[in-house]
Design a protein around this nucleic acid. Structure first.
Lengths: 346, 346
DNA sequence: GTCATGGATGTAACCGGTTACAGTAACCGG
DNA sequence: CCGGTTACTGTAACCGGTTACATCCATGAC
């Protein structure tokens, strides 16, 4: 305990040791003004010797830049986030930025969200915890945000990255109906207010109408895009006294599909012989489920990557507005009833 | 542009409007000194009216606390991280802390890791990017760290949370050998230096010796605990001109198992009829793979939770040292050859 | 009535960087 | 030889909080 053991090396210590002013050290650090070769070399050595690492908070305070971006999500209970995080990470890696993850849902404990202008330079928003008004407020304060799987509020040009939901759901439902003759298709909703779920439901309803199949509220379950929620929900449905007929299930997400398959299995309902099942996302495990899962491939890693790139564009004062809509495609495997020998579909 | 649009509300603005000093405002914010009821009420209102949010960097600079903890991982390419992140998140949620994720591997571009004493109050370390010496250095500087799936360097008491690997691998291999008569078992390594992989390999070698089965270097593949790496590796092995016999595969992780199953499938090798396969982790999808995957259940969410709790103990000056070793258990399903009718194993 | 005590508040230094402004020396063209 | 650049460096104010120290007042013990 010769000195305050906590006290770390500051820029002034470095400056003194190198015989220059703090300004020069700062300039060397940020290479935003010329520093002579001799001085640079000396500083480099001194910093290394002293194990100097600039104090982030001091830097942020003075420069008004945190070099941190935030990602706000409802929760992390989903394998879906792995590709998303990877997309984000891939872009951040290149820059000299950090990455803060926070969960936030409607009615969260803390009123101001854990990430925002006070601790990040910008954020990716994959959460319905913030109202449209809140988004507009952030936007007009010039705080960079990029929405993920969410449509920008009306009259704003907040950039957004999402995937095509409705058309592809229509295609998938048509496949159930035309190819497999299904008529009683269960639709599993995602979390309330989740937009993907909204669009998928629109597609679902559209198809029913187009095929003269009556809409039945009883066939709408809540899957929460979550294996556990979906499992509970499916279980409850199956155990219901006056359970209605059904011959197919669109689970809304691959993760939910896992829960559904588990429930069906426990009731000895065979897939696809008795009911068709389809998911959404095409997560890595989908092709290896039992049976291999028919699903919709969503380019989630690309979503993360593009959203982050767009955020960096904003941070670097380039203009970014409007929605980037990435295409999705149906991946037919066995769970819908198609009799592929094995899923050698690619 | 009446005022600098970027300029946000500061504590002085609040103080002025409320007719008190900044000190009082600060005390109200941190409730670390008495503030009269009347003043409190007034401040509450003023803050709300002005939409005041304390500037994190300023706070950190002055208080020497960032209220951020870091998680350092090699990469995020694995569903394994979902339960881990959830464990961490669950604990952080309760406190008023933030959570920074960074990837870092041996020989990363930036020498000082992206998270450390300069921008976090402590960190969870699930990465082999930092040498033992680096750990010791951090530790002696009193920077709180908790290791995850990594043994503390010798002579240190750095807390660590991990799972039992060796004994359970021995059990699993014994199952392959005793129950299914396997003798040519492929062992897939994880990433180089990954400790779980090291212990599992020790278990593997132990069992071979105990059963008088010769060790064959050709049966050691690199799976990287990653579905793509494992797939490539398996593919290469299978396509090799002088490929050796094998009758079982311990993939090292469920994620790798996916890649292995894919490769086997493409070579029309049937699991478990021709070869047994087992994974590790028991990720959510494992029971639904085709065939359902025999694996080892690791309490990954608990690892994340406990590690984070221990980190908070350190932050709050409570003593934490030594290894917490969480138990693992074998989950028998079909991929090893056991003929369960269906995987109603729970 | 006096003095000690504790509640409530204010003043100003300080945290560790950045950067506007200023200054010096070397160099260059005419 | 001189005025104007350009390269490099230094001084000190500033970013927005926290907190040590001081002050003031009301209360209660004696």
């Amino acid at each position: 305990m010769t000195k305050k053991s906590k006290h770390s090396v500051t820029i002034r210590d470095v400056a003194k040791k190198a015989g220059v002013s703090v300004a020069t050290v700062s300039r060397y650090l940020n290479s935003n003004a010329p520093v002579s070769v001799a001085t640079s070399k000396r500083l480099k050595k001194v910093m290394k010797d002293m194990l100097y690492v600039p104090h982030a908070a001091a830097r942020h305070l003075a420069s008004k830049k945190t070099r941190v971006i935030g990602l706000l999500v409802n929760n992390l209970h989903n394998d879906f986030f792995v590709p998303l995080l990877n997309g984000v990470e891939a872009v951040i890696q290149g820059r000299d930025y950090n990455f803060m993850i926070a969960t936030y849902r409607e009615g969260s404990r803390h009123l101001p969200p854990p990430v925002g202008p006070h601790n990040t330079d910008g954020m990716l928003l994959f959460s319905d915890g913030l109202s449209d008004e809140a988004l507009v407020a952030l936007n007009t304060r010039n705080y960079p945000i990029v929405l993920v799987h969410r449509t920008p509020p009306e009259f704003t040009k907040i950039p957004s990255v999402t995937v095509e939901n409705k058309k592809i759901t229509i295609e998938l439902m048509e496949h159930f109906i035309k190819k497999h003759g299904k008529k009683r298709i269960i639709f599993m909703r995602g979390p309330a207010n989740q937009e993907d779920s909204y669009w998928r439901e629109l597609g679902y309803r559209h198809v029913l109408k187009a095929n003269n199949i009556p809409f039945d509220e009883k066939l709408i379950l809540n899957g929460g895009f979550d294996r556990d929620v979906a499992y509970e929900s499916m279980n409850k449905f199956l155990s219901s006294e006056n359970r209605v007929e059904f011959d197919a299930i669109f689970t809304g997400s691959d993760d939910a599909a896992i829960g559904v398959l588990k429930a069906l299995q426990q009731y000895s309902i065979r897939v696809p012989e008795q009911v068709s099942v389809a998911g959404f996302d095409d997560l890595g495990f989908a092709r290896f489920l039992n049976p291999p899962l028919t699903t919709v491939r969503a380019p989630t890693e690309a979503v993360g990557r593009i959203a982050t790139e767009r955020l960096f564009n904003l941070l670097e004062d380039r203009i970014e507005e409007g929605v980037v809509l990435l295409p999705t495609e149906i991946v037919i495997r066995r769970s819908c009833g198609c009799q592929f020998e094995s899923s050698l579909d690619e």
